[in-house]
Structures are given as structure tokens and as C-alpha cells.
Simulated assay, not measured.
Amino acid sequence: MKEWIGSYNERDWQTAAGGTVRYALLGLGWWTIDLALPAVQNSDLGEVTTFVSSSSDKAERLANENGVDHGISYDEFHEGKASDAYDAVYIGTPNAFHLEYAETAAELGKAVLCEKPMESTVERAREMVDTCEDGDVPLMIAYRMQTDPAVRRAKELIEDGFIGEPVSVYGSNSQPLLEMTPDADQWRLDPELSGYGTSVMDLGIYSINTTRFLLGREPQAVQSQMSSHAEAFEDVPDERSGALLALEDGVKMVTTDSQNAHKDTQLKLTGTDGQIELRPAFHGKAKLCLSRDETTVTVEHESFDAEDEMREEFDYFADRVLTDAEIVPDGRHGLQDMRIIRAVHEAAESGDVVEL
């Protein structure tokens, strides 16, 4: 087992020797202020120069509180105000607003880092891809797990043959949404803003995308069931969701998700020769549990949590913008996740197998 453990190879992606990408942060909710902002502030290749929110008063107030130079409204953003102050935008608004801000960013010639899922529907996601490609601006979808050292080490191990031929994957992601944000009118429970639903769009995408990244295999067909029970979830179909995905090369994946359950996050990949489990996988300090030849060891990376993952994500994006290198989780990569999520919902609604 010793030859497999090794240390995490951090920053294996870095190509830039230096430079700075200046960001405008759009959507000043808790995720942006508490996680994205300090992630950029602690990064090597980025700085925040502009806040964009629903009103200039709010944006200016939060800018003053956080030492950011400019605070503007969404309308002012669309008008191009302060556009000389930033090189790229981070879009952290509700899903259904991502496209319009990406369109303006492309018109202004700004690189785009967009939160996942990239939009509310496949069609709008495709429009975003086309817009950024037509405007010749970089587009990256913010899959922070792809820059988490534990996940990147797991990918190295899989590619080196640690688990043998991949056979199956189990992913689970759940959280008590209404305890975290005690408001039944929040956007994640509004299909006009969230998209196809809430649990798969917001949580299931972690298992799906991380598995795609780790195995380099795409889902080909999906079966699923979902249901909603609590009154607050009556407008969305997937308070609870479970899906079986058939991936390339015969790999089978089961994923379960809920926005109204005890917090849990795990991803387990089993092969012909071994197994890799990340738990916690998507929220908290990820640990690798490695099993092979009747031996199991746990490899910890105590320093990494969501903010650290986002710091790596922002620096990865800045590195690509500064050097014009290829972005792996680009718009077309994010569009594929949107197709998969739509298929999960279509399979649950129809009761049939949906092919991708």
C-alpha cells in the first residue's frame, strides 16, 4: 500500500509565474461574501476590485465594509460602469440569472467564472456557451472539487490503476436546507430561479461532475425516482432523489440527494482491485480512504475546506486567463452536466430509461 499513498501534488496545474486577474463579484449573498471573497483575497493570482448587487447602495456599503474599490448595481454593470476596474466576473447569483450577466461580460470582453449549475435549463446553458465562444472570452464553470487536492490525488490513483478497472460509484449529498436558510421563499425552492428542481441541481451535481472528472467517463443512460413531501418543497419535484446512471465501459453509478435531510456527503468508487472513498466528499475537509489487498488506510488533508478549494479554483481560473491555457471545466463541460440533470428529471417524470 505504501507505494500508492504518497503526498498530494498541489498546484500540478499551474503554468503562470505571476500576474493578477481583477474580479467583479456578482451576487453578494453569503456564499460570495463568506467564501468567494476571502478565497480571492487569499489567492496568489487574483484580487477583488468590484462588487455588483441589486442596488448601488447595497453594493457600495458592502464594498466599503470589505475594502473593495467599487460597488455598482446590476443595471450599472450592464451599462459598463467601472468596467475598466476588472478583468473577469464571478457570477454567484441564482441560476436563472447567470446567462444575462455572462452575456454582458462577453460584450465587455471579460472572462467569466460562473457558479454551477451554469444555468436553469439546458437551452440557456447552451446560449451561454455560444455567447462566450462568439465573444472569444474564457468561460469556466466553478467546480471547486476539481481543484481539491484530495480529489486530484484520487484521480491520479485511479489513472495509475489503484482500483483496477472501475466497476461502480456511489455518491450521496444531503443537507437540511431550511435549517441553513430558514426561509421557504428562498430561490432554491423556486423552479423559476433554480431550474429543473433543487436537490439534483444544487447537490447531485457534485457527485455527477466529480465522477465524470475522476473517471473520464460519461453517463449514457439514466433511471431515477424523486419525490417531495414537506410543504416548503411543494413547487419542486426532488426534495428526495435517487438515480442509477450507466456510464461508459459498463460502470454503474448510484446517486442520492436531498435538501431536507441530515447533512452527509460521500463518494465511493469501487474497481476490480480496490476502492477509493472520499468522506466527507463535497463539504468539509475531504479525506481519502484507500482499500486494496485487505488493507485500508486513510489519508487526510487537514487544511482544506470549501474556502481553500475555492482559492484553488480562482487561482486555476486566473492561471488560465493569464496564460491562455486550456480550461478543463469549460462551458461545454458544464453544459453536459445540465443535460445529465435534465435526463435525471425526465427519467423520474416518465418512469422510463432516458438515454443521453
Score class of each variant (00 low, 15 high):
residue 26 L to D: 08
residue 340 I to K: 09
residue 173 N to K: 13
residue 136 D to S: 10
residue 223 Q to E: 14
residue 296 T to L: 12
residue 137 V to I: 06
residue 28 L to Q: 02
residue 59 A to D: 10
residue 253 M to C: 02
residue 296 T to K: 05
residue 18 G to E: 15
residue 221 A to W: 13
residue 212 R to H: 02
residue 255 T to C: 07
residue 174 S to E: 15
residue 142 A to C: 14
residue 126 R to N: 07
residue 217 R to P: 02
residue 41 Q to F: 10
residue 123 E to P: 00
residue 58 K to E: 07
residue 216 G to F: 12
residue 126 R to Y: 03
residue 335 L to R: 13
residue 229 H to T: 07
residue 135 G to V: 00
residue 113 L to C: 08
residue 335 L to Y: 13
residue 37 L to E: 03
residue 61 R to H: 01
residue 244 L to S: 14
residue 6 G to M: 00
residue 235 D to P: 02
residue 266 Q to M: 04
residue 117 P to T: 15
residue 33 I to K: 07
residue 170 Y to T: 12
residue 302 E to C: 03
residue 144 R to T: 15
residue 5 I to K: 07
residue 182 P to A: 08
residue 321 V to M: 09
residue 101 Y to S: 04
residue 302 E to T: 11
residue 37 L to A: 03
residue 138 P to A: 02
residue 116 K to W: 06
residue 187 W to F: 13
residue 291 S to N: 05
residue 170 Y to M: 08
residue 40 V to N: 05
residue 167 V to I: 05
residue 73 S to M: 10
residue 356 L to K: 03
residue 16 A to G: 04
residue 221 A to E: 12
residue 126 R to F: 07
residue 267 L to R: 00
residue 302 E to G: 12
residue 294 E to H: 10
residue 146 Q to N: 04
residue 169 V to Q: 04
residue 79 E to V: 05
residue 214 L to D: 01
residue 82 A to W: 00
residue 326 E to M: 05
residue 147 T to D: 09
residue 128 M to H: 03
residue 188 R to E: 13
residue 83 S to R: 11
residue 255 T to G: 01
residue 197 G to K: 13
residue 325 A to N: 12
residue 221 A to S: 15
residue 318 A to T: 06
residue 112 V to Y: 10
residue 294 E to V: 04
residue 341 I to K: 00
residue 317 F to E: 15
residue 24 A to I: 09
residue 81 K to C: 08
residue 206 Y to S: 15
residue 160 D to H: 10
residue 287 K to Q: 15
residue 36 A to I: 12
residue 219 P to A: 14
residue 27 G to M: 11
residue 146 Q to M: 09
residue 229 H to C: 07
residue 331 G to C: 08
residue 88 A to E: 08
residue 186 Q to K: 08
residue 168 S to H: 01
residue 182 P to R: 03
residue 351 G to R: 12
residue 6 G to L: 00
residue 121 T to S: 14
residue 244 L to Q: 14
residue 86 Y to L: 14
residue 174 S to L: 06
